[in-house]
Write a protein that binds this DNA or RNA. Sequence first.
DNA 1: CTGTTAGCGCTTTCAT
DNA 2: ATGAAAGCGCTAACAG
Lengths: 342, 342
Amino acid sequence: MKEIDPKRSAVTMVDVAEAAGVSAITVSRSIRRPELVSEEARLRVAAAIERLGYVPDAAASALASKRTDVVGLLVPSLTNSVFSEVLRGIYDAVEETPYSVQIGNFRYSPSGEERLIRTFLRQKPAGMIVAGLDQTDSSRAMLERAECRVVQIMDQGPAPVDLAIGFSHRDGAVSAVEHLLEQGYERIGFMGARMDPRSQRRLAGFTEALKARGLFEARRVVTTPAASTVGLGGQLLGDLLARAPEVDAVFCNNDDLAAGALLEAARRGIEVPRQLGICGFNDLEMSRFLNPALSSVATPRYRIGRGALELLMQVIDAPEEKPEAVDLGTEIKARASTARRG
Amino acid sequence: MKEIDPKRSAVTMVDVAEAAGVSAITVSRSIRRPELVSEEARLRVAAAIERLGYVPDAAASALASKRTDVVGLLVPSLTNSVFSEVLRGIYDAVEETPYSVQIGNFRYSPSGEERLIRTFLRQKPAGMIVAGLDQTDSSRAMLERAECRVVQIMDQGPAPVDLAIGFSHRDGAVSAVEHLLEQGYERIGFMGARMDPRSQRRLAGFTEALKARGLFEARRVVTTPAASTVGLGGQLLGDLLARAPEVDAVFCNNDDLAAGALLEAARRGIEVPRQLGICGFNDLEMSRFLNPALSSVATPRYRIGRGALELLMQVIDAPEEKPEAVDLGTEIKARASTARRG
DNA sequence: CTGTTAGCGCTTTCAT
DNA sequence: ATGAAAGCGCTAACAG
């Protein structure tokens, strides 16, 4: 049985110092800046640390030094496959630095986001990475007053709090619509779930692109506040076809929905791409292996993650630097699911 | 441009106290135990906090009180869809408590896991949740000495460090094999990627179940250390069929591989389930929407997450309590992809 | 290269 | 219901 005894005072730096026959500060230095300590002292300290099972106290260190090596990361979801690539980029990049990442998941709740920002700022993070440009006023104010640099990721738009790296969701949607038009589709529908601010911008791009050509029909747009899943993609395709049976193509807000639509079309005997073109968004790993392969708008998720952390590292010791917002762009991946002319 | 001025000393509790005309301790109390403070004082303090933009310092609080409200969570992956459900369970459960979760991702690296455990313990977490039972000796020793309760999740086996909740990967694999045998498949192959300890146990269950019936053939097992993806599932099916063309069914280590195998079979004109039965593991959301629907071993991921946090809450203020390890079990979902007799 | 001194901002403990 | 004093464990700043 595990023994938990919070009264037994833990080993402190002073204990280690006494055991090693040096002073506390030498212990501190041999942990943080070993090059400033003689090899002999360093070895004695290391041995004492090992022998006593010393674990430095992060809170005491943070309090005394007024700094931490934590980079706070705020995302709206960990289930959404989009963010897993971003995380991979961030983790890859942070591994090359002395910093560590702490994730907060606000689950698409603005008040949850405010709460998390407050919690993170209490810890005096070395930097913050937050998803999106659309924080509440109060969240935005906290980020603006924060004593650390802030990178907003995933999106692209005017007036970021500090730094920003992402892409234009509107432009991505426009390129999808243009691709579908090029392939000869003209009665194009839209399927969207969750409809967070970025999804809204994709819908806006979709709408604009079609309106510019006089091809927009409001009834061809189906959305739901529910979270995107493959199953929901099938349902939404059913809803769309019931409301607007004439649609010859559908732009899906993301690849989960698009995969669901593709599979549902197969179940209904609807031929893709001949009878119905389907285009997704994000270009998830699985999409190109579906039958037919799913066309999609590829988004630079990994590069956003890596880029965000690199941006932060670049400015973290240079408070005066302020790089421009970075637009990484998107790329349409034309595959069989929209190859009407092929 | 964002102003970062680390020299400008931040607002402290004493500043708030002066502004509110009370002492620091009253400020402290009106934040943490408002019921101990008169309403008048509380209102004045709240106003002062608001006016000055006071943000309590987490490090100072942790140092003085020797406690935090952080529950550390260590997972080997955030990309692996398996953990997203676990996270959802944990987040749902923690929302009902005053604690907050901090995720560490060790990316299937044992040394990364050690490093993260060390980092987490420095913060004196209120509790720890770690994936798996197979830590290195050094990791295990740290967890055993930790001044907090520890829950190991995802697996089931002898001698957990402290608490445990999960299911038997071996039994799950056995049930998959039994299902395939019942359906009349006899030359069953195995496809596995990553092959972490839990995957190894699934392979062990697969092997045992077939050996017991004299049906095991080593060449029908293909594995790779690479991470599971849909694309890899297609490749592994190709490898398996090249090495053992006689296989009439395949048990895949997880649903990503199984989905890839299913899609690759379609591409090759192999009829599923008639010519080839395919069974996955985990029962991801998408699996039942594939064509044909994918049979899979459903794992209680959400319940593991929620259960782990609930276990922790249950023992966190009762150091003497030590519940038994919880085995949540698995359930085979028989669907079209293995319905040979159907 | 090493040590001394003086806090960091908060909470605990004990008074009142 | 409120406060005064003491210190949590570490590091910055300055000596030596």
